[in-house]
Design a binder for these strands. Sequence first.
DNA 1: AACCGCTTTGCATACGAATGCAAGTAAATC
DNA 2: GATTTACTTGCATTCGTATGCAAAGCGGTT
Lengths: 340, 340
Amino acid sequence: MEHARITSLQVAEKAGVSQSAVSRVFTPGASASAKTIAKVRKAAEELGYRPNRVARTMITGKSRIIGLVVAYLENQFYPQALEHLSNALQAKGYHVLVFTATNSPEKVEEVMRDLLDFQVDGIITASVAVTSDLTVRCNAAGIPVVMFNRGQDGADVNAVTSDNVNGGRKVAEFLLKCGHTHIAHISGWEGSSTGRDRRQGFVEGLETHGYRPLQIIDGMYNRDTAAQATHDLMTAPTPPDAIFVGNDHMAFAVMDTLRYGLGLKIPQDVAIVGFDDVPLAAWPSYDLTTVRQPLNRMVEATVEMMIAQIDEGVVAPRRVAFDGPLIRRSSTRQAKGHKT
Amino acid sequence: MEHARITSLQVAEKAGVSQSAVSRVFTPGASASAKTIAKVRKAAEELGYRPNRVARTMITGKSRIIGLVVAYLENQFYPQALEHLSNALQAKGYHVLVFTATNSPEKVEEVMRDLLDFQVDGIITASVAVTSDLTVRCNAAGIPVVMFNRGQDGADVNAVTSDNVNGGRKVAEFLLKCGHTHIAHISGWEGSSTGRDRRQGFVEGLETHGYRPLQIIDGMYNRDTAAQATHDLMTAPTPPDAIFVGNDHMAFAVMDTLRYGLGLKIPQDVAIVGFDDVPLAAWPSYDLTTVRQPLNRMVEATVEMMIAQIDEGVVAPRRVAFDGPLIRRSSTRQAKGHKT
DNA sequence: AACCGCTTTGCATACGAATGCAAGTAAATC
DNA sequence: GATTTACTTGCATTCGTATGCAAAGCGGTT
């Protein structure tokens, strides 16, 4: 009992017009008389006709599909981003084809090839490093690429991030204002622009006031690595009295290690600051002071850049960085002279 | 400098064969001589040819795209499922087109229509209720539907879940064994099969031993609702000494409310059991006793069912439920007579 | 050499909608 | 009413690949 698909031709016959007429009724911008439109709409309605997107894609070359490459979804920031991106794109008539890719260049390479096969109209990479060679090839193929939450040095790529350097600086200044002097940093993966930028801003922020980080350890955006780093920091001869952690995801592991592994109090023994402000950060168990990434604005900008490029062709790449506020919660002490 | 796509015709010319020959080389199961294959492969390699999936889809009617309908990604269980499903399908040459849908029937309806437009080969719904009317239409259109982590009463649908009834029963027995007598249940949404089944198993489990639940409140799979319910339960004249919460996501809110809102100790004042065993449940801050949903097996079964249906046509619907173990952690007391 | 069976190959067509072109029609202008 | 102008419409073609069909090739057998 296969319910065969209705084609534009069948609608045309029923409406007593040509197939072209039907097509034009369903093609925004094409011209058709009010009478024709009415006839076609009626026939289409009765038959339950819906234009075939695949056939449409063949002709126009536009699939209205955006490829989204994402590394892993354990860090709550990514599901959140995925959900928002998907919704925002859906609202514009686009849909999201998800690809997971580890951060190995070969894997990314393979994924990108797949993506091109699908005739995606654009590619969004969420925190996945892409070789500039690859983006060049995509641009050559006329496929816009926007990197979400990851930049790329010296390459011509569209990138939307928060202002990570400034965020790092804010953390440094805030912790100094709280009276901390021994501040360590468990950084985001040094292979990522976000990790490097946050670190850089943080170090600059301390230096501006004549301080230096007690120690910096690469946490690799990994819970286990961060936990180990915490352990190492706290058992060293001079333990820190505050730790800036490269993202919330690691910060939670750090807090767990401090509390349940080392029996320390937050913020009395050590203050913790994270980065991202994922929903979990606001839950009472963690109540983590953190730099908020303005997800909504980042998503908006990403979608807007993407669609502009699709509609108007690949243009000069832009980089946008949104400033995000520091959200003070109870994982840090009250700043001096700061009122409740 | 648009890098035009290479077509099979160009490869054919370069290799000195017909377009059909090229097609056959790239179509598994088609016949071609070793010599032809070699010539075509070489030419294709040199030109960088890759078959156009869209054109392929037009002819074969197979897109090798699976639509995944998901409600929300805040509950960590879903990103996890999404990631695993996507990987498993990718390994089989399929890709995932993500749709978000709230649980309103109209929205789901609209999403499903969109999905059909994309010629998806199959649809997986993750914890989204689908009217049986809709699944019937999909089957009529020859599109298999598999419901992941949600069943449907009296309808002919493929469904993969864990054994929720049995899971609920296990929780009841475990809590009784721990010596609890006043056991409340903040249930999963009563509009979902998972919520109902867990509740049913739980009640049955208590009744088998001559007990009844102290109270049952629908937590709607929502943190705020669960928090409010916790408050109501604990401030009632007879508060519970244990609460079974319909999923981990709500259980975290319950624990936060108990500890930080009401100043109670877990498990001394109240024991908590969840359902799912998301990664967060194992983090020391929660360390939640919970029923594990065997995600890997569920994903495997889902993918296997899906692909079987795609390859062999829509067959008699199956329902699979995997038993999951109760994972004992510190949110509950030691069971009587149970050794460390 | 003739015959059979099996594999390989090219030709032509189909999938379903969009669109350039030319013909047709209605409205607007003088 | 003639002519210009703007808008509609249908015809035919196109996108890139898969596939039924018939012709051709090949290997072996008698």
